[in-house]
Structures are given as C-alpha cells and as structure tokens.
Design a binder for these strands. Sequence first.
DNA 1: GCGACATATGCCTGTCAAGGCATGTACGGT
DNA 2: ACCGTACATGCCTTGACAGGCATATGTCGC
Lengths: 111, 111
Amino acid sequence: MSLAEYGRVTADAFTVLAEPTRRRILDRLRRAESSVGELVTDLGVSQPTVSKHLRVLREAGLVSSRTAAQQRIYRIEVRPLQAVDGWLAPYRRLWTSHLDALERHLDSQEP
Amino acid sequence: MSLAEYGRVTADAFTVLAEPTRRRILDRLRRAESSVGELVTDLGVSQPTVSKHLRVLREAGLVSSRTAAQQRIYRIEVRPLQAVDGWLAPYRRLWTSHLDALERHLDSQEP
DNA sequence: GCGACATATGCCTGTCAAGGCATGTACGGT
DNA sequence: ACCGTACATGCCTTGACAGGCATATGTCGC
C-alpha cells in the first residue's frame, strides 16, 4: 500500500487533530491569533516542534499565516473544523434528544 | 456541562477517530448495531482487521458489545463523541457567529 | 465430546509520525 | 554590509500502529 507514486497527500483534519500539541495550539489560537514565539513560550514546547506542527496545521488548512515584520502571525481557519463538525453532526442527534429529555426533567425539578 | 469533565477520554477519542476505517465502522454502526461478520462483509475488510479496530474502539469507550449466541453485537457509545463535541463546541461559535453576522447583514439589505 | 462457525489474538513487517539537534533562510536595525 | 532576531527545514532515532497470516478462544448444535 504505497502512496509514494501519488506524491504527498495532505492529511485530513482528523489525523491532524489526533496530536494533543496541535489541539493545544488551536486552543491557544482560538482566543487570539499569535506569533510562533508566543506559542513557544505559552505552550512550553521547542520552537522547531511548534513550527513543524504549524506546518502540518497549515497544510491541512486549519490555520493560515501572514507575515508581520520578522514574525509570522498564525490564525485559525474554520473550514476543516466545519468538516469535522459535519461528520459529527449525525452522531450528535444520538444524544441531544436524550439530553433534551433530561433538561426538561431538571427544569421541572428546579424552578 | 464543563469541558474539564471530559478530560482524559478526549485525547483517546481523537486518536481513535483518526483512523478512516474506524470512522467507517462507526458510520455503519450509527445506522444499526451489528455483528463483526456484518461489518466485515459491509466494509470489505478482513475479519482480523475489523476485530482489532473494534478492540481499539471498545477500549476507548466508543463502542460496546454484547454476546448473542456465537456472535458479538456491537453498538455505539456516545460519551467519547460527546467529549469530541465538547472540544469542538467553542470553535463552532467561531463560524456560527460569523454566519449570524452575515445573516443580520443580509436581512438589513433585504427589505 | 466433536465439529462447525464466529470472533479474538499473536507474530511479523512495512510505514510513518514526533521530537531533539543543528543548520538554513528571511527580515530589520544599525 | 553586518549582526541579531524569528522562523523554517533537514537529518536522525525512536516508537507507534496498521494489515496480512496463522492460530487460539469461545459458543452452539448434535
């Protein structure tokens, strides 16, 4: 099963999100866009590691970057996350009805 | 429901969902619980492969199994998916608020 | 218990991703 | 032009994991 002849295939959002550090990067970027250096200090991870994760995130379309002086400012792009949400949506129906019933029950107990 | 409550389960769920075949298994189980054999024929994957994926899914709490005669019937468990949804929720606001803003704009343009 | 069926597991191999370290590249200030 | 800052990339090692194949476990009907 070799993909070598087809060239590099960009990883899908699920694969990219499997990495805890990458989710931490996104969690950090969700509050505010930031430079690589800020991510390094905030997350306590080495700079090359952050840059590599950012590359993976960028190639999967989960973040984009703009250049500001010597820094590169990264921000979240939501489209791949929408795709994940789209996959999750039909599953959400499996528990929302149950939760709604629970909420109605709690509301009736707690005025 | 607090995000911290999901905690440890979350990381595992993301890793488990990174595998396309496992997502296909869940997609199949979402419509109806089923035996291993049914999954094998429906997905066109070898039986050991399916069993291994089911083990990973089971250990992550994403599915549960009951024994019926010689078969084992697998069904989806939603809690780890709720954890994923819990992680995704704050991001969802990133685009729903944009959409809301867009809708308000369009509404103001359209008398 | 025996044979047939359904599923789980063990072993092996190839693939690939992650992090440490060193180095390359781009930009700005002086 | 030089130096320092900010970031990217290349190489290397380690470890995880998926799938194929063979085999073990478990369950039923007889």
